[in-house]
Simulated assay, not measured.
Amino acid sequence: MESLGDLLKAMPGGRNMKQQADKLMADLLEDPLVGMLRNKYPELDDATIKLNLNRIYQCTKEYRNCTNCTGLDQCPNDFEGHYTELSCETVGGVVQLNDRKVACKKLIARQSENRIRSRIRSFYIDDRALSQGYSADEIVSKDIERMKAVGQVIGYINRTKEEGLQSEGLYLTGSFGTGKTFLMCYMLHELAKAGFTGAIVYMPEFVEDMKSLMFEQGKLKETVDLLKDTDLLIFDDIGAENLNPWVRDHVLGSILNYRMNRKPTFYTSNYGLDDIEQHFSFTNKDGDDLHKGQRLMDRVRPYVQLVHVTGQNKRGR
């Protein structure tokens, strides 16, 4: 932003600074913003305005910048995302003009959104799914066929906001591209606004990474502990992963065993609960082990509400 000194120098005949200052003083006295300031502080006289010409000029300049704001990234004010606010007080019979920097609405909104995002961790999920923002109207109107599922998710969100963490999560099942992940990201975003932490894990890549961490116990424990402790945990696209006995029993089993009766866990899948139990029962190493599959499902089935997500495939649209 140009300073008052720069403005005076740039004016024709800038060497006659007193004349130019007098002209600027006269212009400021006619400025509606200065009129509003004087209405608020009747004690603000011409002498005080002249003494604080630079402050008042900066205030009016920043106010107009904010009025015509095109976004924080293009903010021309001295302190990005802030404007100057003026106030008056009389001390010992002398009128004093004070200024302070105030955060604008756009900066406050961005800071609030950053705090929300800091409560959410994503593993192998496109961050745009969590950062784009959502509206309830968009969620409802996107596909009328999935209205029932949307109602269940929104109902769950409202219950959690009113009552705190629930004892059960949700299991979203449906065909490819019906918006299961989209709905879970919406839930995370809404509940992060209410102060809850959350994590969403894309299962196929997560399982492969866990296999590679088998002999890196420090990193493995850090990841597992994070997923155990977060308020809301989503396993996305469960059933699409290539399980081995170690990941199933010592990683996934450990996380679910800790969370049951403590914190809700959520799932999205193209498979129903019975099909997922069969999936858990089979590994490439050991073949079928129905007991192990049932054991894991005992930590899933009783702790979820089943949600059928119907509708059209929206991928690529």
Rank of each mutant, 00 (worst) to 15 (best):
E208W: 03
R262G: 02
L220M: 12
T90C: 04
D143S: 15
V95H: 10
S122G: 13
E43I: 02
L226Q: 15
A192W: 11
A103F: 02
R317M: 06
I116T: 10
R146Y: 07
G169P: 00
V95Q: 04
G316F: 09
A240W: 03
D99M: 09
C69W: 01
L226F: 15
L7C: 12
R15K: 14
I120R: 12
F280M: 13
F79W: 00
C185N: 15
Q294C: 11
D236Y: 12
K61Q: 10
D45Y: 01
A129F: 14
D229T: 08
H250T: 02
E168G: 13
Q111E: 08
P245A: 00
Y258N: 14
L306Y: 04
D249E: 15
G218L: 11
R15L: 11
L44K: 09
D249A: 02
R64G: 01
L227W: 14
I154D: 09
G316L: 15
Q305G: 10
G311W: 03
L33I: 05
G316I: 11
N242P: 02
L183N: 13
I116H: 01
D78F: 09
M187V: 11
D99V: 02
Y202H: 12
Y83Q: 06
S122F: 14
D225I: 05
K285H: 04
V34R: 00
V304H: 08
S118C: 09
M11G: 05
S269F: 03
L107V: 07
R119N: 14
P204L: 03
D45Q: 00
Y267S: 00
D209W: 14
L213T: 11
E2Y: 14
R128D: 06
E168N: 11
E222I: 04
E205T: 05
N270V: 05
C88H: 06
L220G: 10
C69V: 01
R299Q: 03
L232K: 12
Y156D: 05
F215R: 13
R248L: 07
Y186C: 07
A10L: 07
V201K: 06
V153P: 04
G293R: 01
I234N: 08
D249H: 10
G14K: 07
D143F: 14
K285C: 01
I276L: 15
M297T: 14
N77A: 06
Q58P: 00
D99E: 15
